[in-house]
């Protein structure tokens, strides 16, 4: 297996000067574009990038403005993983060496409509790094609920009112569902911890076969947060324990960050328009769910 110690670390000082995602039309302060931009800087020039319908494809390729300064393609919405598999298979059959294929898909494109193809890609162990940038709803179409929208979130299809308090389900356990395929490498990350994300992309880059990174990426437009706080809020999510940083490698889970105490969940939620309506009771439900999850992770992963 890949030993991170052997891989030269990529950081702000030594990363390539080249920008591969530039001049795009993402909203100001878009967290997804931070994830795409940084990952591509780690992956470098010999990369095929595949993106299903979603924010990052919608803002990147509007003829004649081509914001991917590298090979990139928009895929069908459910077929990002399979098109990427096809790219990797084509490149292999044509004898191309030192090539990486990467997918950037949103939470809906990954956990909902694209899941079947993703499962097939991992099952075949195709040489593709699949990165899910999770902004917790269908943002491109106007903030509708996805399978990764957390409890309590107000979206345009889960409006919060007198009868229903917004989204009533918790996020799918995407990371563990992926790991259950016995994938070579999977990780969770947040753009609020950028160096950790860079390290994980770098590790996946040097791992042959199917790899997966679930990166938490803020959306000021959909979350109702100021554009300048996109990194901060993604860090807060980790610090309050609603998002965890972990890896799955060699069949083992690893919790990268295991704080003694969590920051306030309420403070994190109340900074965002999408959670403003939540009652103390709703917030308690979120906290209890977080604690159940952490108790299990600590028991099984440490």
């Amino acid at each position: 297996m890949t030993n991170l110690v052997d891989i030269p670390k990529v950081n702000a000082k030594n990363m390539t000067e080249k920008e591969f995602f530039y001049g795009h039309k993402a909203c100001a302060g878009c967290g997804g574009s931070v994830a795409v931009r940084l990952a591509l800087k780690v992956l470098g020039e010999r990369t095929y990038t595949a993106l299903p319908a979603g924010c990052m494809s919608a803002v990147g390729f509007i003829y004649p403005q081509m914001a991917f300064n590298t090979n990139a393609i928009i895929t069908t919405f459910p077929g990002a993983a399979s098109m990427a598999s096809g790219i990797a298979a084509g490149a292999k059959a044509l004898g191309q060496k030192d090539v990486k294929t990467v997918v950037f898909a949103g939470d809906g494109g990954t956990a909902d409509i694209g899941f079947q193809a993703l499962s097939g890609m991992i099952d075949r162990n195709d040489d593709v790094l699949y990165i899910c940038y999770d902004n917790e709803a269908y943002m491109n179409t106007g903030i509708q609920k996805s399978g990764l929208t957390p409890y309590g979130t107000k979206t345009t299809t889960t409006p919060a009112g007198k009868n229903i308090p917004g989204t009533v389900t918790h996020k799918k356990n995407l990371f563990e569902i992926i790991a259950a395929h016995d994938i070579a490498y999977a990780a969770t990350a947040s753009i609020g911890y950028p160096q950790d994300f860079l390290n994980k992309v770098n590790k996946a880059k040097h791992t042959k076969g199917a790899t997966f990174i679930h990166v938490y990426a803020s959306c000021p437009t959909g979350w109702g947060t100021p554009t300048e706080t996109s990194i901060e809020i993604a860090k807060d999510a980790v610090d309050c324990g609603l998002i965890f940083l972990a890896e799955f490698e060699d069949g083992e889970y690893k919790l990268n960050r295991n704080p003694k105490e969590f920051a306030s969940v309420k403070d994190y939620l109340k900074k965002q328009g999408r959670f403003k309506h939540m009652t103390d009771e709703d917030i308690q439900c979120v906290i209890e769910n977080r604690d159940r999850k952490w108790a299990r992770m600590r028991k099984q992963w440490l």
Binding site: Y48, A50, I73, T75, T76, P78, G79, A81, S82, M83, A84, S85, G86, I87, A88, A89, G90, A91, A93, L94, Q96, Q116, A117, S119, G120, D123
Partner: peptide, 18 residues
């Protein structure tokens, strides 16, 4: 794992010249 992926994969391969 499906016909949708069959056509998506062939498009991906064709898109690199295969």
């Amino acid at each position: 794992e499906s016909e949708h992926s069959a056509i998506s994969a062939t498009m991906g391969a064709s898109a690199v010249g295969a």
